[in-house]
């Protein structure tokens, strides 16, 4: 049973990729290891000021391996820097009501994080700092404090790609490319 456990960071609808990684940091190239790490330190710094900092000043990673979101997470730009910044900041999974198409695909192609979808509007039920445990094989997750269990949509063909570490690793593993 593969699980992801940790504190959640809660955001609402229409979190665009400019908020996930503002354009001024797109001068960083994700395939350069130190710039990959730097992208992580800026993850979600474009959120409006009423949100708490996702990564504390001077830190390389955040405290939250799981993001809870509303609708249309990752809308806007096709910048792959967005799932990469989240992955570099230590995010293992996002649980959203829905995703923008390109973000979802980039999350899978890079293998940076699991983009789970849920029928529940969890951004109204959970608050930043709550602890949850995702059971990937059972497609659900449990809120540790209350014991409540919520369903996740099955990832289907997407899960093995993320697990392999992205589309290239998956393609090699499964013999699609040499």
């Amino acid at each position: 049973m593969k699980t992801i456990r940790g504190k959640v960071y809660v955001v609402r609808d229409d979190i665009d990729t400019d908020q996930i990684i503002p354009a001024q940091y797109l001068n960083l190239v994700p395939t350069i290891p130190e710039e990959y790490a730097k992208l992580g330190s800026y993850a979600l710094c474009g959120l409006p000021d009423e949100y708490p900092a996702f990564v504390a000043q001077g830190q390389a990673k955040g405290l939250y391996p799981i993001i809870i979101a509303g609708r249309n997470f990752g809308c806007g730009s096709s910048r792959e820097h967005a799932p990469i910044a989240l992955g570099a900041a230590g995010v293992k999974a996002v649980i959203a009501e829905s995703y923008a198409r390109i973000f979802f695909r980039n999350a899978v192609a890079t293998g940076e994080l699991y983009p789970f979808e849920t029928p529940n509007r969890l951004c109204d039920n959970l608050k930043t700092g709550d602890e949850v445990e995702i059971d990937i094989s059972a497609s659900n997750f449990k809120v540790i404090g209350t014991g409540a269990v919520y369903p996740l949509q099955e990832l289907g063909a997407v899960a093995p790609v993320v697990e392999a570490g992205g589309i290239f690793a998956y393609a090699r593993k499964s013999g699609i490319i040499g």
Binding site: T31, S78, R105, G166, I167
Partner: peptide, 23 residues
Amino acid sequence: GTDSHTCTHGALGAFATGIGNTD
């Protein structure tokens, strides 16, 4: 194109869409 506004080029009857660096 590695830019979300690649969809612009459908104006000339092409299929055009934005993708990430990995794709």
